[in-house]
Nucleic acid binder design. Sequence first.
DNA 1: AAGGCGGGGAC
DNA 2: GTCCCAGCCTT
Length: 357
Amino acid sequence: MYQTSIDDFLEIEEFQQDLISWFLRVQRELPWRQNPTPYQVWVSEIMLQQTRVDTVIPYYDRFMQKYPNPEALAAAEEEDVLKTWEGLGYYSRARNLQTAVREVVSEYNGKVPDNAKELGQLKGVGPYTKGAILSIAYQQPEPAVDGNVMRVISRIRKVEEDIAKPKARKIIEGIVSDMISAEDPSSFNQGLMELGALICKPKNPLCDECPVQAHCRAYKEDLQEMLPIKSRKKSQRTEKYVALLIRDENHRILVQKRPEKGLLANLWQFPMIPMDKANTTDELVQWFGDQYGITIDVHKHLTDIKHVFSHIIWNLDVYSATSTGGCLQEGKGEFLSAEELQQLPFPVSHQKIARLI
DNA sequence: AAGGCGGGGAC
DNA sequence: GTCCCAGCCTT
């Protein structure tokens, strides 16, 4: 059904021409498009995973300033890398990127691999990123199928598979493999993504301005609003916590590092107590004493914070408090000055608390 | 195959 | 509120 027949070759060549010439004419000027090194392509592609271009730009600039090459990133402290990534989300991207870059420095003499086998084994480099690096950095005709490309190809070729399912990506990859330009795979792949971002948008696609309108089955059949087909994800669960801004006698503040796995791994936070463990202030003080080893005096309610993740909603009830005695248990955090806190990476939800200091 | 994993912009 | 963004990893 999605096979390419001999009769389609001429059509495909026209499609390539229309797409690539449009891309070369209208492409946005982006920091990672100025004669990029493979490392620059790699970093930009990791940052762009599930993240909009406009959000990434300032992060990319700061990151490249601090870590201009694989050696610099390999030598950095993880905590500093996370601080540079602070606010961008999906923090395992940063940790996996550093792990992979260290492997590139030690195993490949600092040269980013130019083949699918070695690239695919690097931490955090999946099918999309692998294809993006091979095509954009090395001009190899490999598909790079992201959300944009799934939507664009679904419409152009009337693919009615549910793009939320893994099977759809394989189908789209096959189609792109049959269509990709051998002369300029970089512009072809980037053109598909740029088309998705600027013209072939999820809602209200600008078909009147589309450079490949003549090649689009969805447009021909007026199905552009119906495609792609995508099943809905289930909604988030809610978790309620009390968060505490606890000062000691020197006005230092209690913070702790989160576990090395799971949500917001290795980031820092203010102590949080599940709401069901602290129905009353007395219960809260009791629980905190048991868990942390210090007694606290809870003062006024500062604010409520609602923070939405992709799969969880946090409701944080924030109180100020002072530590009045006891000895902080090992591994339960440390009291730091406001200046010292500035150096540590916090999730956005807890940056909101830090602003109250 | 399904769920965990951030945050923000567009509507 | 909903959707979704230049996705990957784990189970």
